[in-house]
Design a protein around this nucleic acid. Structure first.
Lengths: 100, 100
DNA sequence: ATTTATTTGACAATAATTGTCAAATGTATA
DNA sequence: TATACATTTGACAATTATTGTCAAATAAAT
């Protein structure tokens, strides 16, 4: 599976856009876009939304991918990460059930 | 299900300890412990480990509970949170499979 | 060979987190 | 009731993490 950065780079290149084009629209230095695409930096939520718009990527899919990476970042060195994920899921499920 | 803070408070009271006891061991103000127990602040990872030790709570369980809350915090206002969680899970699963 | 695009890394700006402190409030009991 | 101790509250200070700029280095395309 591609990372968010890879998805963005692939689409940007497909569209023949340069970093400076994105950089101009997002009002940040090309250095950051470069880093985001290579996974050296995380984008902000706003940037993800704008990137989806600019590159005509599906907003929801990109956001899901982005959020999943944020989650994984949170537990990257954790032995118990998977278990924590499952507990988190159950808590959400419970909340949803409750509100029926 | 109890929150991490509730677990901590319950055990602390069961053991007849005051905030100042915990505060002394953790080298932070009672104000913070109070807030952590009531869910107004998040603990740090270190504090969770120390709290498990001091209160003789199962370290792994407390850590899982704590991490799951951190994860949930990350997606608390996100429509797509659940889907992101599932993607995150699949990515972990895939990584594990790959390394066999 | 130049020009243009991207990458790198030092470091500045900003934002989020974690803490202190003092005063207010709650609780028990002499 | 009063007084002693425990907890809570909120303003704000300190610390740490994140996000950004910039300039120089490297890579790619004419």
């Amino acid at each position: 599976m591609k990372t968010t950065g890879e998805t963005i780079r692939a689409k940007r290149e497909e569209k023949g856009l340069f970093l400076r084009h994105i950089s101009y629209k997002l009002k940040i230095d090309t250095a950051i876009i470069s880093k985001i695409e290579r996974g050296e930096r995380k984008a902000t939520r706003k940037q993800i939304i704008m990137l989806a718009k600019i590159l005509k990527l599906d907003k929801e899919s990109l956001l899901i991918q982005y959020l999943s990476e944020k989650i994984l970042y949170e537990i990257k060195d954790e032995e118990l990460g998977m278990q924590a994920l499952k507990v988190a899921e159950n808590i959400i499920k419970y909340k949803v059930t409750k509100n029926k």
